[in-house]
Design a protein around this nucleic acid. Structure first.
Length: 222
DNA sequence: ACTTGATCATTC
DNA sequence: GAATGATCAAGT
């Protein structure tokens, strides 16, 4: 059993210690089996890192390390350091959002401080052979904060105006709003164009690849 | 090659 | 159903 880290320094030390290891090595330490495919285990790598670093497990809301105010994110990258996927942040509230401010939003809270763990995870690599990269702590700078807030406000305006079903993945400078559900039959409440209650797909906020790419480049070009 | 809608496992 | 962890894969 791995104890919850009691300081940011301890967490970073642990994360740094595993950089360079393969997922097979990490899994062996925890006596876990590596799946041959992520098709039916899409969150496996994220869960592996949570266990390794001592994040409070399970499906609890809020940050992974609440006592440290840190959110853990693994991000798959290619050999050039480019992210291979968008990064899911959290689900989007679709009703009762009147008066909600960016600074009070769940997504703003989650992105205050993120421990990024890049995973060299090119598609052709076996899951076992994928490699833990160098971890780093990120806090959005003023520009990033502003871009995130602008996108968030645009999305929340559209949702409040009953236009949730007009939102597509192209909207947003640095993040996008896309379905986040078990499947296309999972529905939740939202507001329709005439102000009536409708059923729609649950949505989530995702950071776009160019945005996370820039964060990684800034980190590793210093 | 990249984007975007769809999907998978698990817990509560 | 909603939250956590995300990637898949068809279409452009």
């Amino acid at each position: 059993m791995i104890l919850i880290p009691d300081s940011e320094q301890q967490l970073m030390q642990r994360a740094s210690d595993i950089a360079g290891l393969s997922l097979a090595q990490l899994a062996a330490d925890l006596q876990m089996e590596v799946p041959s495919s992520l098709l039916r285990n899409k969150g496996w790598i994220g869960n592996l890192l949570e266990l390794t670093l001592g994040a409070s497990a399970g499906s609890k809301p809020q940050q992974d390390f609440p006592q440290l105010g840190i959110e853990l994110k693994t991000i798959p990258i290619d050999r050039f350091g480019k992210p291979l996927e968008t990064t899911f942040v959290c689900v989007t509230p679709l009703i009762g959002i009147g008066g909600l401010q960016w600074q009070q939003s769940n997504i703003c809270n989650k992105l205050r401080k993120v421990l990024w763990v890049p995973i060299l995870a090119e598609k052709k690599m076996a899951i076992s052979d994928r490699i833990i990269g160098s971890p780093f702590l990120w806090q959005p700078n003023k520009i990033e904060q502003s871009l995130l807030q602008q996108d968030w406000e645009e999305f929340m305006d559209l949702i409040a105006l009953g236009k949730v079903e007009h939102i597509n993945g192209r909207i947003g400078q640095v993040m996008q709003l896309r379905p986040k559900a078990a499947n296309s039959r999972a529905l939740t409440d939202a507001v329709g164009e005439d102000g009536q209650r409708i059923k729609t797909l649950p949505r989530g906020f995702y950071l776009k690849i160019p945005f996370t790419h820039q964060i990684l480049k800034r980190q590793f070009s210093i």
